[in-house]
Deep mutational scan, measured.
Amino acid sequence: TVKFKYKGEEKQVDISKIKKVWRVGKMISFTYDEGGGKTGRGAVSEKDAPKELLQ
């Protein structure tokens, strides 16, 4: 599970739902399947990112 803040809201998403991951400076950005055909997005700092996300 990845915990992150998006627009001031605390969120979390299961690693299995993450589609795409990329690095922006010291942040790790990602998109994930929100269900219902929607794609969500989020970002975590490199130090807070789970190891599975960095692979």
Rank of each mutant, 00 (worst) to 15 (best):
K7R: 13
M27Q: 07
K11E: 02
K51D: 11
F4W: 11
G40S: 08
I28F: 04
A43I: 15
K11V: 09
D33Q: 05
K20M: 10
F4Q: 01
M27L: 14
Q55A: 13
L54D: 02
K3P: 02
K11D: 02
K38I: 12
I28Y: 05
I18K: 00
P50S: 05
A43C: 13
K7C: 14
D14Q: 11
K19I: 14
I15M: 12
V13S: 02
E10A: 10
S29Y: 15
Q12H: 09
G42K: 01
A43D: 07
G35N: 04
K26G: 14
K17N: 10
V24N: 13
T31C: 09
G8V: 02
K38M: 08
V24E: 13
K47Q: 13
I18Y: 00
V21F: 07
E46C: 12
G25Y: 04
W22F: 07
L54H: 05
A49R: 01
G42M: 03
G36L: 08
V13M: 04
V13D: 00
R23F: 09
E10R: 06
V2Y: 02
K11F: 10
G8S: 05
V24G: 04
E46D: 08
I28M: 03
K20P: 01
D14L: 14
I28C: 02
S45C: 15
E9A: 10
P50L: 04
E46F: 14
K17F: 09
K20A: 11
V44K: 01
I28H: 00
G37D: 05
E10Y: 13
G37V: 03
S16H: 08
K26R: 12
V13K: 01
Q55V: 13
K26N: 15
S29H: 15
E9V: 14
K19Y: 11
W22H: 06
G42V: 02
E34C: 10
G40E: 07
D48L: 11
K11P: 01
S16T: 10
P50G: 04
K7V: 03
L54V: 12
A43G: 06
V44T: 04
E9K: 13
K47I: 11
E34G: 05
Q12L: 11
G25I: 02
W22I: 07
A43L: 15
R23C: 05
K7T: 02
M27I: 12
V44L: 10
V21I: 13
Q12W: 12
V21P: 01
G42I: 02
Q12Y: 12
V24A: 10
L53Q: 01
T31K: 04
F4N: 01
Q12F: 12
K3M: 07
W22V: 08
G36Y: 07
T1C: 11
G35E: 11
E10M: 13
K19F: 11
I18F: 02
K51L: 15
S29L: 15
Y6C: 11
M27P: 00
E9M: 12
K3I: 12
G37E: 04
D48S: 09
F30K: 00
G25Q: 03
E52W: 14
V21N: 02
E46P: 07
A49P: 02
I15A: 04
R23Q: 09
G40L: 08
P50T: 06
D14A: 13
V44M: 10
S45T: 13
D14I: 06
D14Y: 08
Y6V: 14
D48C: 09
V2T: 02
E52I: 11
E34M: 14
V2N: 00
K47A: 13
E46M: 14
K38A: 08
P50V: 05
L54S: 06
K19A: 05
A43V: 14
V13W: 01
E52D: 08
I28N: 00
S29G: 13
D48I: 08
L53Y: 01
S16F: 07
G42S: 03
K11C: 06
K38V: 12
M27V: 11
E34N: 08
F4H: 02
A43Q: 15
Y6L: 06
K7S: 05
F30W: 01
V44D: 00
G36P: 09
R41H: 12
T39N: 06
D48N: 13
G37W: 03
L53S: 01
L53R: 01
K51W: 14
S45D: 14
V13E: 01
S29C: 15
K20R: 11
K19T: 13
E10S: 09
A49K: 01
M27K: 08
G8F: 03
R41K: 08
P50W: 04
G36S: 10
S16V: 12
K26F: 11
V2W: 03
Y6G: 03
G35L: 06
V2H: 01
G35V: 08
K3V: 12
K19D: 08
D48A: 10
Q55T: 12
T31G: 02
K11A: 04
E34K: 09
G42F: 04
K19W: 09
K5L: 14
G40M: 10
E10G: 05
G25V: 02
Y6N: 06
A49Q: 02
A49G: 02
R41T: 11
R23S: 04
K26Y: 11
K20Q: 12
D33A: 06
K17M: 14
D33M: 05
P50A: 04
K51Q: 12
Q55F: 11
G25W: 03
R23A: 05
D33N: 04
S16D: 10
K17I: 07
G35I: 05
E52S: 10
V21M: 07
K5T: 14
D48H: 13
K17T: 10
S16K: 12
Q12K: 09
G42A: 07
T1P: 05
K47N: 09
G40C: 07
S45F: 14
K47S: 09
D33L: 05
K17Y: 08
T39M: 10
L53C: 03
V13N: 00
K17W: 08
T1F: 14
K47W: 09
I15E: 02
Y32K: 00
K51E: 12
L53V: 04
